[in-house]
């Protein structure tokens, strides 16, 4: 039972991570932000790749990209 619970949790986490990674890619492509995303995760989390982020860190990064888009819209 514990193993089944662990497996389901792991699968849910994997889906969340995949979903957030796809969202990050879509968000960052709009503004050609890939270099900035790499710089930000290196600055903030000390990692070089999205694959190294956990779900909380991915949500933080989505917040950073959405913040960028909001500021860009206000500056239009």
């Amino acid at each position: 039972m514990v193993n089944r619970h662990t497996q389901v949790s792991s699968e849910i986490l994997s889906i969340l991570l995949d979903s957030n990674a796809a969202k990050i890619q879509a968000l960052s492509e709009d503004f050609e932000l890939a270099p900035l995303v790499r710089a930000y995760i290196s600055d903030k989390f000390g990692v070089m790749s999205l694959n190294e982020l956990n779900n909380r860190q991915m949500r933080d990064l989505i917040g950073f990209i959405e913040g960028f888009r909001d500021l860009a819209r206000k500056g239009d």
Binding site: Y40, D43, K44, L71, G75
Partner: peptide, 15 residues
Amino acid sequence: AVGDNGSRYLYCGAK
């Protein structure tokens, strides 16, 4: 980001 009422940080490099 620069507007008529000032600017805001989009990004600030840690270095």
